[in-house]
Design a protein around this nucleic acid. Structure first.
Length: 636
RNA sequence: GCCGACGUAGCUCAACGGCAGAGCAGCUGAUUUGUAAUCAGCAGGUUACCAGUUCAAAUCUGGUCGUCGGCUCCA
């Protein structure tokens, strides 16, 4: 038998007889892998460990610490789930069962819908499957054979998948005991390799993500090598939930939501302070960047919305009313208002670009099932702006906005992800225009060396956009900033400017938001800081805590001095022990506590305690004022 | 909108066909306190809402509304 050369990841080259399996190589090399290998990558392709090598190959063993290894491990767990479900509910039909970030799911169609209580029973059966140590057996079969197999097993969804596989696609099935699944693999050696798992949720999911298709039941789960790792993961999730903006919003008295207005948030004084600080920072930056600010009405005539195209393309999301028997709409976007402002006078090419900003409150009828705290609401304030420019100014204006977004997000310490959203099904305007606009956005992203992912068909109806996404405490992604290129509105509103040639020309518009929606941004900010806002945003920056009644007068003086320099300070004169007041201030996440007793009152000092750094000792009041001012300036 | 779950005092939760309860918060009083909870007392409820079953419903059934986790959709 001929020899082949197998190159391992770390460069080592070994000689083996052709036909050796990766599993054999792995066992031979066990000392360096310690028996934790789950699968293997052969010449860059993920494969089962049982795969045999017939020619020279480069191989890379995968364990759970690699992203691929974990994904394969969890994908195999999803097959165990499907097997357990089929044992308990033979009439259940299989959908798909991939690994996802931190876990896996499998979709089923049950004859009778199951409920969350049934998951326990399914978990028990999964444990049984794991105990049986059933080998995952890969089999390549023909399309006809595959079709016959799944038809005979009563799996219409699998048949649909087979029918849609490309002509030349190799079809493989994986078998474990009595269970067979259409699957490209790879998988673990056997079901016994799964150490610890948990089913974490049950939800509806449309077959193939299309709401016209039947809704299947999706079972979510996760798995790890050991039960300790699993427990740690679940702890982490529980920990993350403590940062949930809905919980902190109530605890810190920032906002509330009421049945009387689902999706219409109520902001309390504390929440308003944060919002006002965000807006004043925003206004400062925008003035610096050459923006003007306007405000346009909430209600505008139906005629306007017909002109803008919203009537045709956005009607299901709009609220309507009547005034003097005429139809009016509550604005779902600010753009038409800005168009009217631009059109209210003549423009020279010298005026361009004109950057018109508006903190506009918009209302949209979102589906009831999508509402989510402040992250998905029905009325929100966009920190909007419409940039009117000559065509040759597009790239520099888009670049300028990208830089602004990056600056803002860095101030708050956000990591963001960029997407380029392209032409949707319900688009306005010609294909050429769309291609041109998409190409421009793509070019700017490439020039700025920003990594992005294409989000096919997700553009606005009037143009493609660059979207910036942030993550909430549970890792769910939310679109915040967006930059949209629009050749349509200037056309619809017949916008013009006079060029150097004395002729009328058509300007181009960029719609953009930085925070996105103030409500959503605030929610993400609450979670980002876990409610412990930096001093510049904190609703209360300082609490003065007198130790006994005898220091009340001094505490009042201190408080007055702090208010005089515009700090948000209050004093806690309740008849309680110091420990009690400190504990409460800690829970309210107030940055600084100033404890004043007899010693401080005598020496005109304050004992400074920081919410994270603890007791900082006695300071002269002036030193504290300078220190907090510095925190505020640096936005720490 | 769709699938599943949930809705009890301001908050966190108990009672699961037989008188609706606890802790924290609130109020009153005592205590004058030195870096994460002083003690005692008082008050607080149409058990989301509307029907129904029952001698009796927070509890069982149906509907409505809302919330949560997803799907779809979007800032």
């Amino acid at each position: 038998m001929s020899q082949i050369t197998v190159k391992l990841r770390h460069g080592e080259e070994l000689s083996y007889p052709a036909g050796i399996s990766c599993l054999e190589i792995c066992r031979e090399q066990e000392h360096s892998y310690g028996g934790t290998i789950l699968a293997v990558e052969i010449n860059g392709k993920e494969c089962d460990l049982r795969t045999v090598l017939l020619a020279d190959s480069e191989i890379n063993f995968l364990d759970f610490s690699t992203e691929q290894g974990a994904r394969i491990y969890r994908h195999s767990t999803s097959h165990v789930l499907a097997q357990a479900v089929k044992r308990l509910y033979p009439e259940a039909r299989l959908g798909i069962g991939p690994a996802i970030e931190n876990g896996f799911y499998y979709d089923f169609e049950f004859a009778e819908p199951i409920s969350a209580a049934d998951l326990e029973k399914i978990e028990k059966e999964m444990e049984q499957v794991i105990t049986e140590k059933l080998p995952f057996k890969r089999r390549e079969i023909s399309r006809e054979e595959a079709r016959a197999l799944f038809q005979q097993r009563g799996e219409p969804y699998k048949c649909e998948l087979i029918d849609e596989l490309p002509e030349d696609e190799l079809i493989t099935v994986y078998e474990q005991g009595e269970f067979v699944d259409l699957c490209a693999g790879p998988h673990l050696l056997d079901t016994g390799k799964i150490g610890a798992f948990k089913l974490t949720g049950l939800a509806g999911a449309y077959w193939r993500g299309d709401e016209r298709n039947p809704m299947l039941q999706r079972i979510y789960g996760t798995s790890f090598l050991t039960s300790e790792q699993l427990a740690q993961h679940l702890d982490l999730l529980a920990e993350a939930q403590k940062r949930d903006h809905r919980k902190l919003g109530r605890e810190l008295d920032l906002f509330s939501l009421h049945e009387e207005g689902p999706g219409f948030p109520f902001f309390h004084h504390n929440g308003m302070i944060i919002i006002e600080e965000l807006l004043s920072f925003w206004r400062e930056q925008h003035r610096r960047a050459g923006y003007e600010e306007i405000r346009t009405p909430l209600l505008l005539s139906r005629v306007l919305w017909e002109q803008s195209g919203h009537w045709e393309h956005f009607r299901e999301n709009m609220y309507f009313t009547q005034i003097d028997e005429q139809d009016y709409a509550v604005k779902p976007m600010n753009c038409p208002g800005a168009m009217l402002v631009y059109r209210s006078r003549m423009h020279s090419y010298r005026d361009l670009p004109r950057r018109i900003a508006e903190l506009g409150l918009v209302h949209r009828h979102e589906l009831s099932g999508t509402l989510h705290g402040l992250l998905r609401v029905r009325s929100f304030t966009q920190d909007d702006a419409h940039l009117f420019m000559a065509p040759d100014q597009i790239e520099s204006e888009v670049a300028g906005v990208i830089e602004m977004v990056d600056y803002f997000y860095r101030v708050f310490g956000f990591n963001y992800r960029v997407e380029l959203s392209t032409r949707p099904a319900k688009a306005m305007g010609s294909l050429e225009m769309w291609n041109r606009a998409e190409a421009i956005l793509e070019r700017v992203l490439q020039e700025k060396e920003i990594s992005y992912r294409i989000n096919e068909g997700d553009g606005a109806f009037y143009g493609p956009k660059i979207d910036f996404h942030l993550e909430d405490c549970l890792g769910r992604s939310w679109q915040c900033s967006t930059i949209q290129l629009d050749f349509q509105m200037p056309e619809k509103f017949d916008l013009t400017y006079i060029g150097a040639d004395g002729q009328k020309h058509r300007p181009v518009v960029i719609h953009r938001v930085i925070y996105g929606a103030i409500e959503r941004f605030l929610a993400l900010l609450i979670e980002q800081y876990a409610g412990a806002f930096p001093a510049w945003l904190a609703p209360q920056q300082v609490v003065v805590i007198p130790i006994t009644e005898r220091q009340h007068a001094y505490a009042a003086d201190v408080c007055t001095a702090l208010s005089a320099v515009s700090f948000r300070a209050y004093r806690d004169e309740r008849n309680e022990k110091v420990g009690y007041k400190i504990r409460e201030a800690q829970l309210k996440k107030i940055p600084y506590m100033l404890i004043v007793g007899a010693r401080e009152a005598e020496s005109n000092q304050v004992a400074v305690r920081h919410r994270e750094k603890g007791d900082l000792g006695p300071w002269p009041l002036d030193k504290f004022i300078a220190h907090l001012q510095q925190d505020i300036v640096e936005k720490k």
